[in-house]
Design a protein around this nucleic acid. Structure first.
Lengths: 203, 203
DNA sequence: TTTTTTACTAAACACTGTTTAGTACTTTTG
DNA sequence: CAAAAGTACTAAACAGTGTTTAGTAAAAAA
């Protein structure tokens, strides 16, 4: 291994170390609550060092964003075993909901936090996200091949279903379900999801 | 008017002045981008003065939150003229969507921004929000009286519909629709909304 | 006229993201 | 080997944040 390669590896290791710490802190405090100084302290370097490996906090955001999508896609993995596409779709919805509730900080970084401007459809930062969305669209086309969702555009339908799931998750995570008494929140959300499933089943 | 009353009025006027400035700044910068110092500067008082009229930034948040809901409820006003409850529901959805896109900062404060903890179902801060939700639930019960939505709990269905609308709006406002090419975003969202309407109509 | 209350603020505290200038240390070169 | 160049890192500063404390000047009450 040449000098240049070793330096590249060292650099990658340092980036990895920063991300590992950032992620650990983030998972139990939330993105906005973690400062560059916190991360620096955790890895026992000065705050300025972070800036030698990441352009700014946004670059760390995108690195964690990609990581979160990878975890989500892995979490989704088992549903590939389900033969019937509609059952697979339902399972995907259930997985989506439980992922959001089990990993609220990851979910936040994936779908809630205001993301910087340079993130249009050509950006590498959204590759994992597009992959997941593509998976959903493919699933809907499989359903259509079996006679479901007639006359609906699969891309629009995918966005509709995504919106439905995201709406339930983000209202919960951002405390907008507090207008319901605490002991009925879970029930209302489950019933809403049941209603949505029944509606899609009839379609 | 006694001394005490005049003082109360002066106090209310000062609060009003702070809120007016805060709102103006907020509408063209977004909540997180407006600081207490900015508001103080706008009203030509010191930052510390703000704290004589509001406990903290959250109290300003809640005041604007209530105001935003009032504007929303007024915006919804005209749909009361629509006789058929289902048509009224559809119109409400359309109004919701256009309100979110026309007043993104207001929408943010109503539904997206992380809200402080002391906001459970007993809190006064959510009175306007609950009123709006109650209106939707009433609407669904009217629809049921006309034979629609059989076998669905109106409260859960209200949450489902709210989630659907909120999902579409918040994905848009938080730039998560950027994975679609720019010139098809509007079309996809409209088609998703059309699909949702058709689904509810068939129910 | 003295005392008390009111309305306000300067300055500080403990943070934030980020940049600049500089320091040790290692590597390369003459 | 010594000088020059490059690397890895940081102290300190900049400009900002929400919030609190201590204090001042003016008005009202005693």
């Amino acid at each position: 291994m040449g000098v240049k390669e070793r330096k590249e590896r060292d650099r990658a290791e340092m980036r990895e170390m920063i991300l590992t710490s950032a992620h650990r802190l983030f998972v139990d405090r939330g993105f906005e609550e973690v400062s560059i100084r916190n991360i620096a302290e955790a890895i026992e370097y000065s705050p300025a060092t972070i800036y030698l490996y990441f352009k700014d906090k946004n670059e760390i955001f995108f690195a964690l964003h990609t990581e979160a999508f990878k975890v989500f896609n892995e979490f989704l993995g088992p549903i590939l075993q389900i033969a019937d596409p509609f059952q697979r779709l339902v399972a995907m919805g259930e997985k989506y909901l439980s992922f959001a509730l089990m990993h609220p900080q990851r979910y936040e970084i994936m779908f809630i936090i205001e993301s910087p401007m340079d993130c249009d459809e050509n950006s590498e930062n959204w590759a994992e996200g597009r992959r997941t969305l593509g998976f959903l669209e493919g699933l809907l086309m499989e359903c259509q091949a079996k006679g479901r969702f007639k006359g609906h555009n699969p891309q629009s339908l995918a966005f509709m279903i995504w919106s439905q799931m995201h709406g339930m998750c983000s209202l919960e995570l951002r405390n907008r379900t507090r207008c319901y008494p605490e002991d009925s929140r879970l029930q209302i959300r489950n019933e809403a999801f049941e209603s949505f499933k029944r509606i899609l089943a009839q379609l």
